[in-house]
Amino acid sequence: MRKLSFEGFLKRYVVELSGVQTTNVHKLADCLCENPRMKEPLFLYALTFDKVNLLLRYTMNSNVAAEYNQLSNRYSSVKMLSLLENLSPELPEGYLKVWRSYCSVRDATLADNDTKELIHRRVLELQKEKHLTNYRLYTDLQLNPGNVNAWLKCNDSNKMSLNCAR
């Protein structure tokens, strides 16, 4: 599975927040009036995909135009990414929230793998204690035998979802 990039996250995030199922900057900018939560992700999206001029044109008469203009003059895409990665206090809190949201989504599989590791150890302890075979586990729980065996014998966490491990 490919690692989630900030660009990919922003693309999905603005579409999800807007509810318009498009990455068209004009349509996304129109959603700003109804959805003020889009202000920061939309600017980061436009900056990342080199669409700031379009965004400035479509938000010219709105209350976010001044902030967008100031940020676009001050930061390049590379500089903004660097400040976000370092959680710089120089940036407004809303932009840091977008970065933290990205980090939580990006690192969710790592947290799941840690949880699956704890569950794996406990299942092995219970198997020993109760004298349960892998066969008994996957037949009684109606799980995929290959995945259960790969998880229990080789500790391959990719073969078992967190839900199935629980």
Rank of each mutant, 00 (worst) to 15 (best):
L10Y: 03
L118V: 08
N61E: 14
R57Q: 15
S62Y: 08
R121Y: 13
Y68S: 02
D114G: 13
N24D: 15
R122F: 03
V14E: 06
G94L: 06
L83N: 00
H120N: 05
R106S: 04
V52W: 00
L54N: 07
E129F: 09
F9D: 00
V105K: 00
L56I: 08
A111F: 13
V20N: 06
L118Y: 14
T109A: 11
C31F: 14
V105G: 03
L84C: 08
S101M: 12
N61K: 15
E16R: 03
S88C: 08
S101F: 10
L83Y: 02
D112E: 11
H131P: 01
L32P: 00
Y102F: 13
N69L: 14
L83S: 02
E85Y: 13
C103H: 00
T109Q: 09
L54S: 07
A66Y: 14
L81S: 10
S77L: 07
M80S: 01
V20A: 04
H131M: 06
R100L: 03
L32C: 10
L110T: 02
D50N: 12
L44N: 03
Q70F: 14
R74P: 08
Y102S: 05
L28T: 00
L44P: 01
H131T: 02
K11N: 15
R100K: 12
F43E: 01
T23A: 11
R122T: 08
V20F: 08
A29C: 09
N73F: 04
I119M: 08
A46C: 11
R74V: 09
N113V: 06
S62T: 15
N61L: 10
A108D: 07
Q127W: 10
F49P: 07
M38V: 11
Y102W: 06
L55N: 01
V20C: 09
K39Q: 09
M80Y: 03
D30R: 11
E90S: 13
F43M: 00
S101T: 05
S76A: 12
Y95V: 03
E125Q: 14
Q127T: 07
G8I: 05
T115F: 08
L55M: 08
V52E: 04
V98R: 04
L17C: 07
C33E: 15
L44V: 06
H26E: 13
L42E: 04
E67H: 12
R122M: 06
E67T: 10
V78P: 04
S62A: 07
S88H: 09
Y58R: 06
E40V: 06
W99Y: 09
P36Y: 04
S62E: 12
V15G: 10
S62G: 07
R57F: 14
L10N: 03
M80I: 04
T115S: 11
C33W: 12
E117G: 11
D112H: 07
Y45T: 08
N73Y: 10
E117V: 09
K27I: 15
V20S: 11
F9L: 02
V52N: 03
S101K: 01
N86Y: 11
Y58D: 05
T48P: 05
T23K: 12
G8L: 07
F43R: 05
T48K: 01
R37I: 09
S88R: 01
L110Q: 04
E117R: 14
C31P: 15
S72M: 03
K79F: 10
A65C: 12
R12T: 15
V15H: 01
S101A: 12
Q21A: 15
Q21F: 13
P89N: 09
N73A: 09
